[in-house]
Design a protein around this nucleic acid. Sequence first.
DNA 1: ATTGATTATTTCAACGTTGAGATAAAACCA
DNA 2: TGGTTTTATCTCAACGTTGAAATAATCAAT
Lengths: 172, 172
Amino acid sequence: MSDASGDAVDAIIGQWEAERPDLADDLWPVQVIGRLQRLGWILEKEIKAFAAERGLELGEFDILTTLQRSGPPYELTAGAFRKAAMVTSGAITNRIDRMEAKGLVERVRDTGDRRAVKIRLTERGHEVTRTFMKEHLANEARILADFGREDSEELAAKLRKLLETLGDTSIK
Amino acid sequence: MSDASGDAVDAIIGQWEAERPDLADDLWPVQVIGRLQRLGWILEKEIKAFAAERGLELGEFDILTTLQRSGPPYELTAGAFRKAAMVTSGAITNRIDRMEAKGLVERVRDTGDRRAVKIRLTERGHEVTRTFMKEHLANEARILADFGREDSEELAAKLRKLLETLGDTSIK
DNA sequence: ATTGATTATTTCAACGTTGAGATAAAACCA
DNA sequence: TGGTTTTATCTCAACGTTGAAATAATCAAT
């Protein structure tokens, strides 16, 4: 059933129902996954633009915040980033290269394990992250302002449940 | 409040509360946006792998399904794809180039407006999309199987509301 | 009809990620 | 100690996207 009103996903499902009636009973996952995909795109674009205004790549922002929220001594290995950021090793190397050039982080060879490289937040990196993070949260609050706090809490609870179902229980 | 159990986002929020108590009251949007981001990554990876097993790029899959669900005569302009797929013009040109080489679509110069190029699904493209789509929906159903149909419906309703709030009401 | 503005697509260099292979160090085990 | 396996990072070519500039056709207005 495609309503006259609705979001883009309702329209897409309506198109499928008309074109492939044989699949009508199998379309229900699209309601969820299609919407999650669209929201992912929209939000990524939003946050990417926000970061770009401040001279940061999205991945670089990711490194900075991961590092700061990890707490003292504000250093993590490249491997830790790979897992936290869900990207490959080459991407981490490149990001750190760029950020080291900007003076936001520094590489510190681990004294114990000389294979490992600790990435440490510089004083400048700290400052940038501090102000950036506050603005970032304000921006996210703005994005959700019309949706509202109460709906946000309810939605968050359901999203948590889905993530747990999918096994996303760790940031290690 | 960071629970002992929970998903990755609960852990992240817990870290921020410890490291930046001054931001504690501003973290609520992360509950939603952080989770939407993670779900976007997870699902994209899942679907990308699924497409790759069948020799298709994610963007190519996007073109195929957009084309098929548009109904007869199964042709759209490059511009229509740009809007539907939320990507830039160069990306569309490249995708169509690759897919034309694979014999999945063909370019047809519009007889009326000779600036426009219609992208049309070939017979082979139709076949591929038909089988692919059925498997794709089965795959999505598998992903959501543990989450359940009822929770899916409830979650979908909230996601729709958020998308509408963000102005994502059209696929034109 | 001619000029100017707009619209549609393609081109292309820059960019970030991927992923396999290389390098190097540590851990394991005889 | 010596040899093998494992772990951590870096290297680098291939890949897809971005976004601005180029090309080409239509539309608008006089």
